[in-house]
Design a protein around this nucleic acid. Sequence first.
DNA 1: TCGTTTGCCGAAACCGGTTTCGGGAATGCA
DNA 2: TGCATTCCCGAAACCGGTTTCGGCAAACGA
Lengths: 378, 378
Amino acid sequence: MSSLHDPIAPGDRARRTTISDVSEALGLTKSTVSRALNDYPDISEGTRTRVRRMAQKMGYRPLATAQAIRTGRVQAIGFIIELSEHDANRPFMAEFLAGISRSASAEGWTLTVAASSSQDETLDIISRLRSESKADGFIIPRTLAHDRRIATLRHNYIPFVMFGRTQSAEPAAFYDIAGEDAMRAAVMCLHALGHRRIAFINGGTQYNYSRLRMDGYRAGMAQAGLGIDPTLIAQECLSEADGYRAAQAMLASDQPPTGFVFALDRAALGLYPLADEHGLKIGKHLSVIAYDGVAEGAAVTPPLSTYSVDIARAGERLGALLIRHIRGEAAQDLQELEQATFLDRGSAGPPAFTSDQLSAHLGGQIPSGAHTNGRNTT
Amino acid sequence: MSSLHDPIAPGDRARRTTISDVSEALGLTKSTVSRALNDYPDISEGTRTRVRRMAQKMGYRPLATAQAIRTGRVQAIGFIIELSEHDANRPFMAEFLAGISRSASAEGWTLTVAASSSQDETLDIISRLRSESKADGFIIPRTLAHDRRIATLRHNYIPFVMFGRTQSAEPAAFYDIAGEDAMRAAVMCLHALGHRRIAFINGGTQYNYSRLRMDGYRAGMAQAGLGIDPTLIAQECLSEADGYRAAQAMLASDQPPTGFVFALDRAALGLYPLADEHGLKIGKHLSVIAYDGVAEGAAVTPPLSTYSVDIARAGERLGALLIRHIRGEAAQDLQELEQATFLDRGSAGPPAFTSDQLSAHLGGQIPSGAHTNGRNTT
DNA sequence: TCGTTTGCCGAAACCGGTTTCGGGAATGCA
DNA sequence: TGCATTCCCGAAACCGGTTTCGGCAAACGA
């Protein structure tokens, strides 16, 4: 259709140099040049370097779409935005994509992005993009403990790298931050400050990270010689409102916690208004350490101490790993686990109240049910 | 290189149906099928529908990368994330991309994303992606009054659609929200509520929207029969801190404004702590109407009244327009201007103080210079 | 009725690469 | 010196499409 009338295309766009241009300049055939550039063993070392040099000199870069029709590969990384997710990760999106894009373009690759509104649609998009040669492999964020996406990818022999880990016997390529270590260290930190009642407020249990962070909390408690009290553990707290409610319930108990470990910054932010309402100061009467490093954490008073994740770096590493995987490296050689960076910003300190004192203080208060507005993050 | 060893590709992936499959099934040649599907005039109506039906039945979809090597088009929309931008628009990114992706996949197209850290790099990326057939055209966000990207695109005959407008004689395809109308209406609204001193706090002047919103403010003031007071106008206020400072300066004057129109929600959020410090209630002593519809605006007390922009819809419309443009429709037929949606959430009301009363109230206060922390949005 | 146009489709080249196949020249071994 | 390898590279097919060209048959005009 667009071929009949073309009001946009120029009369004659500057043509790129093709493989034929290179071969003619050398007095060789296309096939020789192609094999030389692709390191075929039946090309002599001399010819190989001669071709290399000439290609370099002429600025030749093979056209990815042309290669694709034979090889099935376009040199593109696939990434799918799942809008069904709670939007906690949305603000990161730009930096994450930028990270991926950086490592991609460093290798002459590009990034293909699609949006999905459900798990099923994601699976469809994955196979569609692959079969249409729009992406050679995928970066899979927010891995679940049991992830259908992984099954689909494996079944279709589509290369992928996870941001996060998953429970599976077969090895898979991944990049992840050791959230479990961070949680363990957070507990140890609070314990060292003198806290004895330490709560853990976890994220969504469907996610694999949540299991790991829980493990980390348990490990920390064990290491500190503290027992696990189930009433000091909450799950599924993704938003500020969730965190508020979970902490509220715990503070209402006989032996309220003086220290809080949150699996998510966003949930931890719910502790601030709660403390306000009870006249408690964070960093003094209540201590909190969280995880993620969201921007809002720096804006509250006192700023939230947190284990921060460099999301752009994550994207960059993931992109690099995926490209290597697509080029043939084995999954088990493509696993990177890094540590989060602790930002000590003052929201955790020595407890001014023991749990008993805290309980007494809170007992003398009208149980606040008045706090309703402003909790809902759209 | 990847051709020598291939530990990932399956023995035999399910082959897609090709144009040859279709032509053989019909007893026609590839060329006839191709021309039939592309609406060439030298194919009879009968054959055309016969081919259509068979292609449909066999689930044939032309392989974009194969088409590309002849046509130069991959059916992909290009979008570049500029990290050099102030990060105000980052949170929108996911939804914006999702919008683009929706309209793209509705037509069987995809979205190619790249990141850039400078204007110059952006220009490079644009031509590189185009010449490598990784994108057929581009969506250009945050248009400037005089935009080098537009010049580059025009010069290289690369189709594009702007999110925003620009100052240029030649017509260009765009989708935009009439920010000028919103600003005018905001002024009228405040005037109707009884405000007579109405300030305007604008965004970055390099952006084209800023000029337009300023025009809208002026138009509103004229329409309301109010004169323009240059001391009630501020520029370059992008962040909460910027908004705080600009409003602070205005409140310090002899005739402080009682009504504020902000070109950006984010800057408007700076008015809240400022009001707090002076014991003023927003929606009562100070009224404010802003523009964008960011999530944080709903969380403050009272929620910020604002002209909200549906960013996902913007992405979707832009994608649709770009595809039509690439298919041959003229730029002047591809211009859409929509209105922002006013969300009246209570931050604007009848002024409890006149400007004089407000001045008196503020005069009795210690000029606050103490407010320093928490203003910086990372 | 006959030459000419028009409508419609097949044949083949082409796009820019990759990959298979085969053979000439240089080398190995006897 | 003769024969079998091995080393290299050219020739050509191929990938899945698009586009040009040419020709046959039917419709047209005179």
